[in-house]
Design a protein around this nucleic acid. Structure first.
Lengths: 334, 334
DNA sequence: TCCGGTATCGATAACGGTTGCGATACCGAT
DNA sequence: ATCGGTATCGCAACCGTTATCGATACCGGA
């Protein structure tokens, strides 16, 4: 670990000024091919790593896009991220992830932290924020996109699906197939607003045809196959008349399916199952589970494109409000 | 979007100097409680977000820890991350994730990018890097921890398990249970070095008792239940005599289990299955799959602690080489 | 009243690059 | 030989904050 190398040192070694070295290393014009080659050579062999803190302060530009999501364990946000990365791939921008842990206070502090680095854009999941967060997002002098959800008041741009609609449509599909003794298993994390909206949409959809939920189960903590299996077992034990269960997440419905396999129940003969998200883990199971696609990848792509376009136009473009259509896939379990 | 607010403005509004405002907002000493309250009040109501780029340049310190992992979809790295986050939780440090996509060239550019922000520490997955990457890691003037793997030459600190050993021990367990017609299904991603080491360790373990693999299948792309199921079906179709399959990942072995369920094969009666990682998705399945725990959470925790300790001691502490013991869990499928 | 000590605050100089613009060198054309 | 134009380079100021050190005010004790 030698003495730390500055641009100044590289320049000295190359026998040029700092400015020329800076230009050469950034690929800026006004440097002859020969000097540029020499400077690059020196920088490479000596392992010079430019200090982007100084560079960004000076140039007043940071090629980072802040992405704030509730969690990375839930299988759902990594796919949003991959959509973002795919679009940013051939641009100078790089995504940086922050995790809010389904906690609005934590989200506020994470967003504050990210904005303090003056990113070129910010993408955040959800439309619900603390007042302070909303204020920060409004004042931020970079494009801001709220993603995943469209049921609410976005601060600026917005790309997502309606979870109310997703819940309602699943209710309609379930009713259309004749199920009437319906249970719901969902998270009780008070701040998973989208799960809550699906629940509300679902019960609305049932109510529209005068059906009410026969059973209801809430769990805390992250969704898991294990939890889905246990809660399904419990619900069916106390309520054997149930003919259908809707889960707030595919991970949970997979657990439900596992219970049915283990208990020798026929799906959908004895009990129908439906989840949400269209996660990749649904592929390859013994039965194709019913679900609603949450358009995760596309949401990420579109959000990233908004950031890119906003850079081109200098932030002078109009507000984007992209409401994608969540496609139901009935599978074999309804 | 009002004019951008600087520390200078906050200070002016509060009727104090920039320095006092700076101290107040950072919680530094030498500010009376009254002035501090006033400054904080003003900063809050006006939505001041400090510019950490300037702050970090001036203070020569960045409270970020760079974490470079191959992927976030694979279910395995988010858990390492959560270990890191847990430890960093009550420290000023925050993790920042970079994704290398199982590509050493991309890893080099991601690490260069992260180091250019002069983080307080760097955690990278794996021991294999390009020459340039190794040089950067050596020269970095922050603690560097390579995680996940211990089979190789770490640049500085290292925390992980031996994948060679994991493969070998699984071979021993499988042989001890009398299986002799053994197949292997694993990734052919040329740069998933750890999967390759498990494979090598596995065949070594078999060879030690003069057993050779009966069948072998490689796939490209990310692991998935779907792929695991398909490849298992193929392998069993062409090689019905197989009595055991070892997979390079739990995700794949779950797919294998799904095939067996669908095909009416008894596990382990007709065919035994074993995977690797001890992922959460194994919980709740009809059968408890055999696997090896990769100690992901603990690896993350330990890596983060090394960074923290190194900050305290000013980097003067000795090298850490933590070789954790991967625990085999036999489950019900061997 | 004077003094030393502490609490509180401010002026100034970095931090390591980049922007802006002026300076120099070099070229062919006149 | 002179000139205008272009390619190449360097000087100085600045980006927004913090470290350092010195200044001031205030307090109790002698």
């Amino acid at each position: 670990m030698t003495k730390k190398l500055l641009l100044k040192d590289v320049a000295k070694l190359a026998g040029v000024s700092e400015m020329t070295a800076s230009r050469a290393l950034r690929g800026a014009p006004d440097v002859s091919a020969k000097t540029k080659a020499k400077i690059e050579e020196i920088a490479r062999t000596h392992g010079y790593v430019p200090n982007r803190i100084a560079g960004s302060l000076s140039s007043q530009s940071v090629n980072l896009v802040a992405v704030v999501v509730p969690s990375l364990n839930s299988f759902v946000f990594p796919e949003v991220l991959s959509g973002i990365s795919a679009v940013l791939k051939d641009s100078p921008l790089k995504p940086v992830v922050g995790i809010s842990g389904y906690d609005l206070a934590e989200e506020e502090s994470v967003i504050r932290e990210m904005l303090s680095w003056r990113p070129s854009g910010l993408i955040a999941a959800g439309l619900e924020h603390t007042g302070a967060t909303r204020r920060m997002l409004q004042q931020a002098d970079c494009p801001v996109v709220e993603v995943m959800d469209v049921d609410g008041d976005p601060v600026r741009h917005c790309v997502g699906i309606s979870h109310l609609q997703a819940g309602r449509e699943m209710a309609e599909q379930i009713l259309a197939r004749g199920y009437r003794n319906i249970g719901f298993i969902g998270t009780k994390m008070p701040q998973d607003f989208r799960a809550r909206k699906r629940f509300d949409g679902f019960t609305d959809g049932l109510a529209a045809q005068s059906v009410t939920l026969s059973d209801l189960e809430h769990y805390s903590g992250e969704s898991s196959i294990q939890t889905g299996r246990q809660l399904t077992a419990q619900m069916l034990a106390r309520n054997p008349g149930l003919d259908c269960i809707y889960y707030s997440s595919d991970v949970m419905s997979v657990g439900g399916l596992m219970h049915c396999l283990a208990a020798g129940l026929s799906v959908p003969g004895d009990i129908a199952l439906a989840g949400f998200n269209n996660l990749q883990i649904l592929q390859g199971l013994p039965l194709q589970l019913a679900t609603t696609d949450a358009c995760r990848h596309e949401i990420g792509e579109r959000a990233a494109r908004i950031i890119l376009k906003s850079r081109e136009t200098g932030g002078a473009e109009g507000l984007v409000f992209d409401r994608l259509t969540p496609a139901i896939s009935l599978g074999e379990t309804l």
